[in-house]
Design a protein around this nucleic acid. Structure first.
Length: 314
DNA sequence: ATGGTTTTTACTGCGTC
DNA sequence: GACGCGGTAAAAACCAT
């Protein structure tokens, strides 16, 4: 169960021209005002902000905007040591012992990283970029995925795990952290492995590495993605987004798959505008069934008087 | 493990082109 | 007849406990 309003704050911001809400475009990494057409540069002061840095670069850093959940920290050795300062019983070491161990660890990890582990790391990082390319994901998602993987290695979570399993799981998590709408199914397909095993690794990472809850991409992002993929008239998207915002109600969306809801909005919008896309097509692109689309539509129509609010002609 | 919820599968009937 | 659509029952998948 997820609350759509919880992550709404992450990407919502307002147009400097007319004050209307800006709509984030997950594909292009920019935000657009639906009212006046103002286009904000990538992450002016709202969404995640990043600099393209070579993946292999050692002192990697990902800059993000104000939302703290997206903040990524420095990847120096210090973090590794800080998190491991316990003895075998899980108790914290005393300060003098701590200092000694710290030195040891420093050397140990220097030796380690220059040999096999560093190589293993670069293999996975390569896979991550491959999968991200397959999914047409922006650079920052790959960066985030790489960061997640690096910390999983440090926390020993990645030890003796399937390479593709970890790859897919980190990419999927990165998508969610960056607010990009890619389903687990899609990531699994791009990585060429079972959806189930991706979920398994994903949960593992969620448990031991990324403990904060990361909400799935919003319905609105799913709408944008769906429209882009299916090459639907942008005006349908506009209407769909409008509808989704007007009916952005936890009563409707809670517990429901965002992709299904997005499909319903797009389908309804296409009908309202007279384009009338077949349910079959919309459902196919959204990777849900027609039944789900229908159910969402029905619920929407049951709970809202959409025609009047939208000004449906005819 | 389990129980509640959501999605999918598979099938049927209805109207229209 | 084929197609799009709406509905339903039951299976499967999912999620929190």
């Amino acid at each position: 169960m997820w609350d759509p309003k919880a992550n709404d704050e992450l990407y919502r911001s307002y147009c400097p021209n007319c004050g209307d809400r800006l709509i984030g475009d997950s594909e292009k990494g920019e935000q657009v005002c639906q009212a006046c057409g103002y286009v904000a540069a990538a992450g002016a002061d709202q969404g995640p902000e990043w600099k393209a840095i070579d993946l292999e670069e050692k002192s990697k850093r990902v800059r993000v905007g104000s939302p703290t959940t997206l903040t990524l920290h420095d990847l120096g050795l210090s973090t590794d040591i800080g998190s491991d300062m316990r003895d075998s019983h899980g108790k914290y070491l005393d300060p003098t012992m701590r200092a000694t161990v710290e030195k040891m660890k420093k050397w140990q990890s220097r030796i380690r990283t220059s040999t096999s582990q560093e190589r293993g790391l670069s293999i996975v990082l390569g896979r991550i970029t491959e999968v991200c390319d397959n999914l047409n994901l922006p650079r920052n998602v790959a960066e985030t995925a790489a960061h997640i993987y690096r910390t999983s290695v440090k926390l020993k979570v990645a030890k003796s795990k399937s390479i593709m399993g970890m790859t897919a799981a980190t990419v999927y998590l990165a998508c969610r952290k960056c607010g990009v709408s890619r389903t687990l199914k899609e990531v699994a397909r791009a990585a060429g492995i079972e959806k189930g095993s991706v979920a398994k690794y994903f949960r593992l990472i969620l448990k031991d590495v990324e403990k904060e809850y990361v909400p799935p991409a919003s319905v609105e992002k799913h709408i944008s993605k769906l429209v882009n993929f299916a090459k639907i008239d942008p005006r349908v998207e506009h209407l769909a987004l409008l509808l989704s915002r007007m009916t952005n109600d936890s009563k409707i969306s809670s517990g429901k798959a965002p992709a299904g809801l997005a499909a319903a909005y797009v389908y309804m919008s296409s009908v309202m505008r007279g384009d009338h896309l077949p349910q079959r097509e919309v459902a196919e692109f959204a990777e849900v069934t027609e039944v789900t689309v229908r159910n969402r539509c029905r619920e929407l129509l049951d709970n809202y008087i959409i025609r009047q609010k939208i000004g449906w002609k005819e």
